[in-house]
């Protein structure tokens, strides 16, 4: 009995010491819930689960991922908005939560949450089939100028649709824009040449890119992608358009300064962790830390831009 007790005690001490040494910032909670609307194995869920071991070590807390599906994020938003603002629960944000807030009347909208910090951007890219007659974005736009363009966006009310509508406006062309039930659905129509061009997240099309069935036409962001240094941004190609599909966290209103400071300190370290960096680069994520004060502004701008777009296209009044 006692023989067993000593190693156990030693082990306990070690754990306590390790926890004490890593928790320099004295984060107020031991357990932090990260709530996502995505189902186990879905986009945001995988993102959180891959991130949590690295982040937990940095912050000296236990991270629990809670899947609250349903209502396109409405349930998860309501739960976090109602939670105590003690740094114990956060919602994993993506543009979905803005869209859900604007499209329906959820119990809590994005305005009832406090944006915390941003971590990543999902790069949005324009692409066509590798054996398509279009070689560059200019080819696609020229064809559209003659009134024969067919472009695709994954979902009717989505950031991708917004990209295509804005591109159409800025380039002054009039293609038709068909929408689908998700990226995979649209991808097929790009591959069989029904569509001239599609738009989507890099990770959605990575399998087809690896198989050399697709050609990238441009990056709809501020900078080129490290994996594809030859692919120019849309801006470089003369069209002033750039979107940022964000991935970050938001908490209940009234989250304290200390808590925010702890996250602002931890996230840049997390993004610099070489092992984690290799992992997220492989998944096509771009690091994009935005500190709290800026993130609040970013989110409200993103919200009002999206609202303007939805009103313009007649989706909401």
């Amino acid at each position: 009995m006692s023989r067993l007790r000593i190693p156990l005690l030693a082990l306990g001490l070690c754990v306590a010491l390790a926890a004490a040494s890593s928790a320099q910032g004295k984060y107020p909670k031991n357990v932090v819930m990260l709530v996502t609307h995505s189902s186990p194995g879905g986009g945001s869920d995988v993102f959180l689960r891959e991130l949590s071991p690295y982040l937990a070590r940095l912050m000296g807390v236990n991270l629990v991922i809670d899947n609250m599906q349903g209502g396109s994020g409405a349930r998860a938003m309501a739960a976090v908005a109602k939670a105590k603002p003690d740094g114990g629960s956060f919602y994993a944000t993506t543009p979905t939560f803005i869209y859900t807030s604007l499209l329906s009347r959820p119990a809590a909208s994005y305005k009832d949450l406090e944006p915390l910090v941003n971590m990543f951007f999902d790069p949005e890219v324009l692409y066509t089939a590798a054996d398509s007659r279009f070689k560059t974005l200019k080819d696609v736009l020229d064809a559209a100028r003659q009134g024969k363009g067919k472009w695709g966006a994954a979902n009717p009310a989505s950031l991708e649709r917004q990209v295509m509508e804005r591109l159409k406006q800025k380039a002054g062309v009039t293609p038709v824009i068909a929408t689908f039930e998700g990226g995979g659905d649209m991808l097929i129509n790009v591959l069989n040449h029904t569509l001239d061009m599609g738009v989507g997240e890099l990770q959605e099309i990575s399998a087809q890119l690896d198989a050399r069935k697709l050609r990238l036409l441009g990056v709809v962001g501020e900078a080129r992608l490290p994996q594809f240094p030859d692919v120019r941004t849309v801006k470089e190609q003369g069209i002033d358009l750039s979107v940022r599909k964000f991935r970050g966290l938001a908490g209940p209103k009234g989250t304290s300064r200390e808590v925010i400071a702890a996250w602002e300190a931890a996230v840049p370290k997390l993004l610099a962790d070489p092992k984690y960096k290799a992992l997220y680069t492989k998944n096509g994520l771009q690091p994009g830390f935005i500190p709290h004060a800026e993130y609040v502004k970013f989110m409200s701008e993103f919200g009002s831009q999206t609202e303007a777009f939805l009103k313009e296209s007649g989706v909401i009044r």
């Binding site: 209502g71 959820p106 009717p156 009310a157 296209s313 007649g314 989706v315």
Partner: peptide, 20 residues
């Protein structure tokens, strides 16, 4: 649910549960 082309909400009565 959501209209497949325009993205308008149909018969959802502002309920997020019916969006999809």
């Amino acid at each position: 649910g959501t209209d497949p082309v325009t993205g308008l909400n149909r018969f959802t009565f502002d309920s997020p549960e019916l969006l999809s």
